[in-house]
Amino acid sequence: MTFELELQTLWAALVLYVLAGVLAIVGVALQHKPERMVLVLLLFGLVLHTVSIVMRWDRLGHGPYITMYEILLSNVWSLLAIYVLAYWRIPAIRATAAVVMPILFVMMGWLLMASPYEGHLPVTYHTIWLFIHIGFGKLFLGNVLVAVGISGIILLRKSPYGSVCLVRMPEDSRLDELSFRFMAMGIIFETLMLIVGAIWAQDAWGRYWAWDPLETWSFLTWLCLAFALHVRVTYKVSPQVGALMVIAVFVLAFLTFFGVPFISISPHKGAV
């Protein structure tokens, strides 16, 4: 009964997210501003989603970080929480919901297809460092997602239809600056994630770094992010080029977070 209620609560949350996303996309397409309604739907969705996660945590006795279902469950929540915060605090970027929500729809669809049954909690996961490591990872990806939303707007505005629909958005240079800020926050949180991950690895496996697939691809993502930020400083690239680099970083980070742990046979898997 608890398990069913937990799933029903999650589905209710997903329905609210989908409604919010559709409303945001239609709002951009029709040049309306249903922003308050979008925010309310997202907030209610987040509340239900939080309840679902708390029910699962209470039932299983551990957080949502073992199976693919749990990782998607917690990441959809954290990405939305960070995005809603940005959406609420920076009204100028609210049209980015039309870019961000479809990305999250893909994750939600994947979540619905994943098996919701419990996995085994490895003994190496009984440490506070795991929570801190995961927390910084989620903050990193959330910030990059907001930057992706802004970058999407910059690129969409180059299309004839986008130039009409997104005419009320701030100019590209201002969006580019905002995107840079979120990427800068992203590199801070990713660096912290790597440091804390190294502390955890030292405790769990007796080595702080061993180039396992997840460590390697996380470091490559960090290098890619550092490269993108440096290119922006060195060459004063156009907002469009900057936007493409942001998307490249996000794609790499996404594959690292949701791809590598599940094709790897190393012990470091599924911890993000």
Binding site: W211, L223, C224, F227, H230
Partner: peptide
């Protein structure tokens, strides 16, 4: 700074090679 970019790219290639 241009050299920094080359080094970051080289480091990425080196990591991939080692991996």
């Amino acid at each position: 700074l241009k050299l920094t970019l080359v080094i970051l790219a080289a480091l990425g290639v080196a990591v991939l090679t080692a991996y």
